[in-house]
Simulated scan of single mutants.
Amino acid sequence: MNIVFDIGNVLIAWDPRAAFRHGFASDAEIDAFLAEVEFYAWNLEQDRGRSRADAIAAAREDHAALLDGYFERFHLTIQDKICETWSLMERLRAKGHGIYGLTNFAADTWPVALRVHPQLGEAFEDVVVSGHEGTVKPEREIYDLLCRRNALSPSDCLFIDDSAANADGARKAGWQAHHFTTPDALRRDLTERGLL
């Protein structure tokens, strides 16, 4: 079996608030700002391949400086590994399973992730980064792309993602999928599937 890992909030905790704490008095204020600027939709366009310059150009003028600062402080948002998931990945590797990565990640911030967590550059037989490919999960193309690039059969792939929509996208592409909530729940599922 080929095990395909999402990265954000599966292997690496992602806390976008951390990039904005210098500018706000509380996380509640940050959340209000993120809602006002529709941060997650804005950020998804970078995951789809939009450049930093175009992202800032698309922002309202009064939001541009804070949003540009997100790129400067991105490293603060990905400080913590989810160590238990990494341990499960290593157990799967030791069992002989293929280990791959499939992530919605901006081309401008992926190199930062590799600097903060060099293990990401060594963990996978291949990793598909959405910002390099111009397509994002849960669109069918990104799942098919990983299979084509690595000559994998979709039915031989198990995808692990913290987004239920992305896990469902994998199933629609013919993969098996696990909607990640906790490492313990993942371990139980992998055990029940006979993969550990």
Results as ranks from 00 to 15, higher is better:
116 V>M: 11
99 I>T: 10
70 Y>Q: 02
104 N>M: 10
90 E>K: 11
105 F>R: 12
130 S>D: 11
80 D>F: 06
106 A>T: 06
107 A>F: 03
108 D>N: 08
96 G>A: 06
115 R>T: 13
105 F>K: 02
91 R>P: 00
130 S>R: 08
93 R>Y: 01
107 A>P: 04
119 Q>S: 14
103 T>D: 07
84 E>W: 01
133 E>N: 08
92 L>H: 10
101 G>V: 12
105 F>A: 13
92 L>R: 09
130 S>W: 04
73 R>I: 01
78 I>G: 02
102 L>D: 09
74 F>P: 02
71 F>G: 04
99 I>F: 09
72 E>G: 05
113 A>G: 15
76 L>Q: 14
128 V>H: 03
113 A>F: 03
128 V>E: 13
90 E>D: 15
106 A>G: 15
108 D>T: 15
100 Y>L: 12
106 A>H: 05
113 A>R: 00
128 V>M: 11
117 H>N: 05
69 G>F: 06
133 E>T: 01
93 R>Q: 14
97 H>Y: 06
101 G>P: 12
71 F>I: 11
91 R>E: 14
83 C>Y: 11
134 G>C: 07
112 V>N: 02
101 G>I: 11
101 G>L: 12
102 L>A: 11
78 I>F: 02
103 T>H: 05
132 H>Q: 13
89 M>S: 12
83 C>G: 14
115 R>P: 00
87 S>V: 12
111 P>R: 00
94 A>S: 15
93 R>M: 02
72 E>R: 13
102 L>H: 08
114 L>I: 05
114 L>S: 03
100 Y>N: 10
126 D>H: 15
124 F>H: 06
95 K>H: 15
106 A>L: 08
113 A>T: 05
112 V>D: 03
115 R>H: 12
71 F>C: 07
87 S>Y: 02
135 T>G: 00
86 W>P: 04
134 G>W: 08
111 P>C: 01
105 F>G: 01
120 L>C: 07
76 L>C: 10
117 H>R: 08
72 E>Q: 12
86 W>L: 06
74 F>Q: 00
102 L>C: 11
110 W>Q: 06
78 I>L: 08
95 K>F: 04
132 H>A: 10
114 L>A: 11
109 T>W: 02
123 A>K: 07
94 A>N: 12
86 W>G: 03
111 P>L: 00
78 I>W: 01
124 F>K: 04
109 T>L: 11
122 E>K: 13
126 D>V: 00
118 P>N: 04
113 A>Q: 02
124 F>E: 06
114 L>C: 15
118 P>L: 05
85 T>K: 08
88 L>F: 07
94 A>P: 01
108 D>G: 06
116 V>S: 00
94 A>T: 14
77 T>D: 00
125 E>M: 13
110 W>T: 01
89 M>H: 07
132 H>C: 10
107 A>R: 15
73 R>V: 00
114 L>M: 12
75 H>Y: 12
120 L>G: 06
89 M>Q: 14
127 V>H: 04
79 Q>N: 00
134 G>I: 08
78 I>N: 04
118 P>F: 03
127 V>G: 04
85 T>M: 09
107 A>Q: 14
123 A>C: 10
109 T>D: 02
81 K>M: 10
127 V>R: 05
100 Y>R: 09
128 V>P: 03
98 G>V: 09
86 W>I: 04
87 S>H: 13
129 V>N: 05
98 G>C: 07
130 S>P: 06
79 Q>I: 08
122 E>P: 00
92 L>S: 10
96 G>R: 05
